[in-house]
Design a protein around this nucleic acid. Structure first.
Lengths: 212, 212
DNA sequence: AAGTGTGAACCCCTTCACAGCA
DNA sequence: TGCTGTGAAGGGGTTCACACTT
């Protein structure tokens, strides 16, 4: 299984490839892709090797083929849909973000404690009371959750999600979740991102990978 | 200079420490802090050692002292203020996020191309036309920017920010920025986060650091 | 007895460098 | 000639393990 950094880069590569395809470009060399995705040639070749895809010395990598090969690794029907928990400002922004792009991503359900927010769909996504969390997650067979609730209630919400069958969480709450090892949590910590950028912007530190 | 992962963890530690302080706890042992911040004892001790702080075998680390020591490393007046570029849904959510908490973070200016959005302050933050980017950044001496514009215009906006004096960017646009090496860019890639969680949630992979 | 501080070992990701190939 | 595929080397962050301290 490819390491975590490789998975992140593959995601970036695919986005770049989509752009190239839109411009009608059919092939790329590793150093070109590297340039566009802020990586380097050796890394690109190694990543592509890890997913069992190959190119040719003459033409490089076929844009469409490579994108499909990445899709085979990253995409899966089970994780294309997620439940969004917490329809505050950030929650709404995320629903919009993923609705706007006829994309691979779908918010299959939205949960919120505020009864006045639920009932009518938001941006086409069905909304439900937080009380129905277990029921909704189970019936829709959801495995991924996006947490945009206040920090105080994040842990409880996460536990209920996991109990209901969720195995992956993207957590926007500024709170470290304590969950079983088998659950994969990606913490999107906006305040930490700010502090980190502030720190490294002060002292110019070179080795940078513009990562997530 | 501490490595990047350490800076991220210090940010998490401080948040945990704030919680402990609020509960009136005065000391923590490394393994306790590790538990709460999803790390491990050796890592915590190493991180704390790297910033030149020490504890005692008898009582562990003094909560307040450690928080202040972390603050000395992370905090700096120059990076406590940032300009937010792009007042869409996500931009608004971030302004709210940072305004709500009488926090260390301040949005000193908001820029947008939509003239109807600018002029009147939003959540107390002054708003300006995108045309005045250079002027605003220079006059307010801003060094950090938060980019929440569409991908198509992210590169241009970033270049103008850098030319105006910005040295650190938190980029929410799904787009790899190509900027001079001295500029520190933190990519917050929401789609990539989803794909990554989807991937690792499928196969239960163990070694996880719940990082950013 | 239990925890800190830290040299040293370890591990994993990255980068090098070059054989093989078009 | 120039690029891919990849073994091998390298580098940097993490973890071990233990002397030292209370």
């Amino acid at each position: 299984m490819p390491p975590e950094p490789t998975i992140e880069r593959l995601s970036r590569y695919r986005r770049v490839l989509a752009g190239l395809a839109a411009e009608g470009q059919t092939h790329v060399f590793s150093h070109e892709l590297a340039e566009l995705a802020h990586s380097n040639g050796a890394q690109v070749r190694r990543d592509i090797m890890l997913i069992g895809h190959t190119g040719s010395p003459a033409k490089g990598y076929a844009v469409g083929d490579l994108a499909r090969a990445i899709g085979k690794v990253l995409d899966d029907p089970a994780t294309a849909r997620a439940v969004l928990v917490g329809l505050g400002n950030l929650g709404r922004a995320l629903v919009d973000y993923f609705s706007n792009r006829g994309s691979r991503f779908a918010i299959a359900a939205i949960l919120d404690t505020d009864e006045s927010k639920v009932g009518a769909p938001y941006r086409g996504c069905p909304t439900f009371s937080m009380e129905r969390l277990e029921e909704v997650v189970a019936e829709k067979k959801l495995r991924l959750a996006i947490l945009t609730v206040p920090a105080e209630v994040a842990q409880e919400a996460a536990e209920r999600l996991v109990a209901a069958g969720v195995t992956g969480i993207v957590n926007f709450a500024p709170m470290t979740l304590r969950l079983p090892e088998r659950v994969f949590v990606e913490q999107v910590d906006i305040a930490a991102a700010w502090e980190k950028v502030g720190y490294f912007a002060r002292r110019r530190r070179s080795p940078r990978r513009q990562g997530t």
